[in-house]
Computed example of a mutant assay.
Amino acid sequence: MRLELPAGTFRAYLFDCDGTIVDSMPLHYKAWKKALAEHGAEYEEELFYAWGGRPIREIIRLLNEMQGLEMPVEELAARKEALYHQLVPTLQPIPEVVEHIDAKHGHIPMAVVSGSRRSSVTASLGAVNLLDKFDTLVCAEDYKNGKPAPDAFLLAAERLGVPPAECLVFEDTDLGIEAATAAGMVSVKVPQPLERG
């Protein structure tokens, strides 16, 4: 797999974290399965990838509605995150994305724009020794409206001091690509594990 970048001169790179920089989606899915099994809930793998980029609490609310359950949102969110953190030491980066991070590090500003909480993002980036490559991290605590709203990407561009039109976004989910487009940014799609084959 090679990532073909769109034509243009970009003054900043913005990266989603899970499934884009780090191959964490299979680990997140394992954590979800284990946490949800404790409540007798199902989460099909195809749906998990289709919902990529959605906030954790929204996923729990939706699963509750779909399956007629009353799982405790905060408690389950904390449990799922704790299970994920146990798996973090086994995390691997996505080489085709790291190649672009290494090539531009020190030349243009870069940010991570994630729907995950800061503790999860810093743990993931720390596990693959990439935390120091980014000028800013925009995480779930930093904005009100998650992807597909453009808020997180616009905040990252503002922090980096680069106009949105001059930012290139790396994303693995349709929600993330929608958010980048809504922010007036060009994006490149990183194939998900199911698409890599």
Rank of each mutant, 00 (worst) to 15 (best):
K147T: 04
E46H: 06
S116V: 00
V138C: 07
L47Q: 14
L168C: 02
E166I: 00
A111S: 08
P163A: 10
S114T: 11
L5A: 11
P164K: 01
A182N: 14
A179E: 04
V97S: 08
P89R: 05
F15V: 01
T173W: 06
W51T: 03
H39V: 00
L194I: 10
R61A: 13
G52L: 05
H100N: 06
V121D: 05
A156H: 06
S187L: 10
L47W: 10
L125W: 11
G52S: 15
P109Q: 11
E58C: 03
K34P: 00
I59W: 06
L63K: 07
S124Y: 03
I59K: 14
L5W: 14
K34Y: 04
L83V: 02
L137C: 04
I21N: 08
P148Q: 12
R2S: 13
W51D: 11
I56N: 14
R196C: 06
D132A: 09
V113F: 04
D23C: 06
F48V: 00
E70Q: 15
L125M: 12
G161D: 14
L168I: 01
V73F: 09
A7G: 06
L3R: 10
A156Q: 10
L160E: 05
P6W: 15
F134N: 03
L131H: 09
F170P: 00
I177H: 04
S114V: 05
G115L: 03
G8R: 13
H107P: 00
K34N: 04
L131P: 00
E195S: 07
A50F: 10
E75C: 01
Q67E: 15
L160F: 02
V112I: 12
F153N: 01
E45N: 02
I56Y: 03
E171D: 15
A77S: 15
V128D: 12
E46K: 09
V98L: 14
M25F: 07
A37Q: 13
A31F: 04
G115P: 01
G146H: 13
E74L: 08
S119K: 11
A78E: 15
A140L: 13
L160Q: 03
M1V: 08
K80R: 13
L14G: 03
A149Y: 15
F10K: 05
P55I: 01
E44A: 14
A165E: 15
D174C: 02
R159Q: 14
A179N: 07
E38L: 12
E65L: 13
M71L: 11
E4N: 13
A165I: 04
V138W: 02
P72Q: 13
M66Y: 14
A82E: 15
P95L: 08
T20S: 12
Q192K: 13
T136F: 05
V22E: 11
E74F: 12
K34V: 01
R11M: 05
E38K: 14
D172W: 08
L125S: 03
T122H: 11
A77R: 09
M1D: 12
Y43N: 05
L27Q: 09
